[in-house]
């Protein structure tokens, strides 16, 4: 699976993963490791989703300029992850998404997690985080027109993204701790993470307001000047 060289193989893979690999993982998880099958299933699904996405992007023709801009935004997001407590990573992914397109947003989110985890530690959580921030970028990209126009929507999106991300990561925490999903534990996890979720949601909104103009104007200028 490691070498995806020609298009035919890649096409096969695109179908093989959802229809072959994922069911296989489910069966494997259910039979061999019955203790933590949900964990391995979700891990497999997250990984497969990322591979699928990236295979889609690989096929597309990304111009050199867009490529550089995505790399710069990714690097900014990585640097942002080193700021204690307030992390502008979501805001930067959203900026990348609404000014450079949904795919760029996805890449910015997913790749910045992958790079920063070189310092913070890789683990089974990496694919989940990649998928999480990738999705935040991707969805923002699909909503780019309204998000560009309305500041309220942008704030709403930041808050919502913060809450949704925390809640999804809590599912993973429960699975890791307990093996199966339990509503009680999930509730406990959500409550114990509440201060962080709140801080996260607020800082998302704050950074989105703060960065919208500087980053947005600069990206607009570059896009105009160089025709990205």
């Amino acid at each position: 699976m490691t070498v995806i060289k020609n298009r035919a193989v890649r096409t096969v893979l695109r179908y093989a993963i959802p229809f072959g690999a994922i069911p296989a993982l489910v069966i494997l998880g259910a039979t061999v490791f019955d203790e933590k099958r949900y964990l391995i299933i979700s891990f497999g699904v997250a990984l497969a989703a990322i591979v699928l996405f990236m295979a889609g992007i690989e096929k597309k023709n990304i111009g050199s300029r867009r490529m550089v801009l995505v790399a710069v935004m990714t690097a900014l997001a990585v640097i942002g992850r080193f700021i204690p407590l307030f992390k502008p990573i979501t805001a930067i992914c959203v900026m990348a998404a609404i000014y450079l397109g949904a795919e760029s947003g996805f890449l910015c989110g997913a790749l910045s997690v992958l790079i920063s985890n070189i310092y913070f530690g890789q683990g089974p959580w990496t694919p989940f985080q990649m998928l999480g921030f990738g999705m935040i970028g991707l969805i923002a990209g699909y909503l780019c027109e309204p998000l560009k126009k309305s500041r309220a929507l942008l704030i709403g999106y930041g808050v919502l993204a913060g809450i949704a991300y925390s809640m999804i990561m809590d599912v993973w925490t429960v699975l890791w701790y307990n093996g199966t999903f339990s509503p009680d534990l999930y509730l406990a996890a959500i409550i114990s993470a509440l201060p962080f979720t709140a801080l996260y949601a607020v800082s998302n909104a704050g950074f989105l307001i703060l960065l919208k103009k500087p980053i947005g104007d600069k990206l607009e200028r570059i896009k105009q000047k160089y025709g990205v």
Binding site: V3, E58, M67, L76, V78, I115
Partner: peptide, 24 residues
Amino acid sequence: LFGRLSPKISLILSMAIRYTELLR
């Protein structure tokens, strides 16, 4: 590892890693 998976993604990764250092 990513280069074997997707040359394009690995190029973006390589550029992003360089920029991380440069920006610092």
